[in-house]
Design a protein around this nucleic acid. Structure first.
Lengths: 344, 344
DNA sequence: CTGTTAGCGCATTCAG
DNA sequence: CTGAATGCGCTAACAG
């Protein structure tokens, strides 16, 4: 067999027609070609196992059908669910996906953007962990559509956000409505807009219900080592240990995400405290695991998959209709009540 | 700013040199260029925010630095861990990754292969769910390196396998050594080599220890709906329900994967059976979650991440040294003893 | 050391 | 309806 891929020239030669004609047929251009030649070309193409070279095609067209997606880390199940949403929607609309992990490092995020630009992607979905807006701005100037997901940034582009403030507010209020009056917050470093907003929501809920805020009830892990689920779990463990040592500890806890909540729960349980009998916890994300843990986790749903598919739909639309103004959107949280919160 | 990306021609014009010179500098070709011009070109490139167009580059070179990876479904945490291994290793070696999900459909798997070929990837990592070898063969004929991961197929190419037979054997033997004499198997449809081998390993372990095989102790879920972790969990639930209804049920169970084991455990627990007091279970995969479940799951480690990175290393090596013969490898299982198996 | 040229595979003008 | 010619951005001969 041919060692190399067949090109339109090979087909043209085999059929005794011009490359132009072959191109018109195989690319489904709609350009008129006699039915006879069309069939001949199609058949020869099949015989030669012709696969169009997308590089040539994209180079000529000055654009590709590739979408880039930049996330912190794929092994985090939250992001893998987000990616699934992105991927499914992209495929459904005829686009391919090029994955980039930023590993939570702004330098790598910037490098990722450059790589994607070099590959001439027509759009980028970005969960940014930096504050840099320059690379994004440049990408947009070069005609690349960018959609910011999850994390907000001071730049004028389409954003698909999530109301973290309200989510944390709802979580806190949930505990309050179950008559908790001493509520802890188990969080992570406040290095991203989402987390800052969450603490604000927590505090506002407390204030609105005339519950005094106690600084030592907020426990933020100091460092973030890796991004696997296990580290978040460990953060939860550490926080629970902190609270277990506290004489008069809170009865309820709002956690920054589900894995952290699960780590805390397991640690409380190991210390002989029953959940939700002795302590109540509420998570954030609604990852698949939260439904199968024991107790099943009460949490805030972030419709992660939908966020991925919606972002992709919006990205594709803004690629295909660049002139039309495209507005941003903020997804709203839903409380998912399961078994980790008890009424006092 | 320029609406379009700057090219080497733009830089050449700005510097008053030829495009060839610019190319030689920016591509780090090692071709001699006077230090003066080199600096000038570099500086101008930076000013113009030059990003090389990889399409042109790859088209010219007749090859890219892209690797394709085809897996059933990214939202399965097993595959997302595998992908992380692949991705990390690829990046470390200067390759980009194009992700494809086959959604467990052979037709889509074939389409994925074609898409990757069209994008001129230089190698493909494939977790195949079909039996078709034709598309793979064609890819290889066109000079694309293919590495088969996890699932075996009747085709001559480099393979990175896992000893599923021995894994299941070890799992079964583990229960036997804990004095279990009635051992069930909780599985999935036998549509893939890995699963067939697992049942074989289970049966052989029984035979080797003179334990009679009881057909009704093998419970395979009939259909496979989706591939999210939750469905595997549900399969485990269904199997547990089946065994709970059985008068004289097995005391120990070998499960086809960890999520299935977790579903079964949860269901046994709901029925008032304690794990491992009343029933023992052993999983397969060693996904992160198996370490944090309660009880912590005894399981067979599949070194999933390493399988991803090793496969990628082998792929890159066979791309960079095509003449050298490259041999396949089979990874061996390790038993991870935790808390879900009790000695009778 | 530098420049000119050609061609990778494709789609698209413009002639016929 | 069909074909010849051009250029997308880049690199690799080949000349100078």
């Amino acid at each position: 067999m041919s060692d190399k891929n067949a090109t339109i020239y090979d087909i043209a030669r085999a059929c005794g027609v011009s490359p132009a004609t072959v191109s018109r047929v195989v690319s489904n251009s709609g350009y008129p070609v006699s039915e006879r030649t069309r069939q001949l070309v199609l058949q020869t193409a099949r015989q030669l196992h012709y696969t169009p070279n997308l590089l040539g095609k994209s180079l000529k067209a000055q654009k590709s059908r590739d979408l880039g997606i930049i996330i912190p880390n794929i092994s985090n199940s939250y992001y893998s669910l987000l990616l699934q949403g992105v991927y499914d929607e992209a495929i459904a609309r005829g686009y391919n996906t090029i994955l980039c992990n930023s590993y939570r490092k702004p330098e790598i995020e910037e490098k990722n953007i450059n790589t994607l630009m070099a590959k001439q992607v027509c759009g980028i979905l970005l969960v940014s962990i930096g504050k840099q807006t320059e690379p994004i701005r440049r990408a947009m100037e070069h005609g690349c559509q960018v959609i910011l997901m999850e994390q907000d940034l001071n730049i004028d582009c389409v954003k698909v956000g999530f109301n973290f403030y309200k989510g944390a507010y709802m979580a806190t209020r949930c505990l309050i409505e179950h008559h908790h009056r001493r509520i802890g917050f188990i969080g992570a470093p406040l290095d991203r807009s989402s987390r800052i907003r969450m603490v604000e929501g927590y505090r506002q809920a407390l204030a609105d219900h005339h519950i005094p805020e106690i600084p030592r009830d907020i426990c933020l892990s100091e460092t973030e080592r890796d991004d696997t689920q296990i580290y978040e779990f460990e953060n939860g463990r550490a926080a629970a240990t902190y609270f277990i040592d506290m004489e008069d500890r809170p009865t309820g806890y709002v956690c920054v995400n589900d894995m952290t909540a699960l780590g805390a729960i397991r640690t409380f349980q190991s210390a002989g405290l029953s959940v939700p009998q002795d302590v109540s916890l509420i998570g954030f994300d609604n990852i698949p695991y939260s439904e199968i843990s024991s107790p099943r986790l009460t949490t805030i749903d972030q419709c992660t998959y939908d966020m991925g598919s919606l972002s992709t739909r919006m990205l594709v639309e803004s690629i295909e209709e660049p002139k039309k103004p495209h507005s941003s959107i903020t997804l709203e949280p839903t409380l998912v009540e399961r078994d980790s919160v008890r009424t006092l």
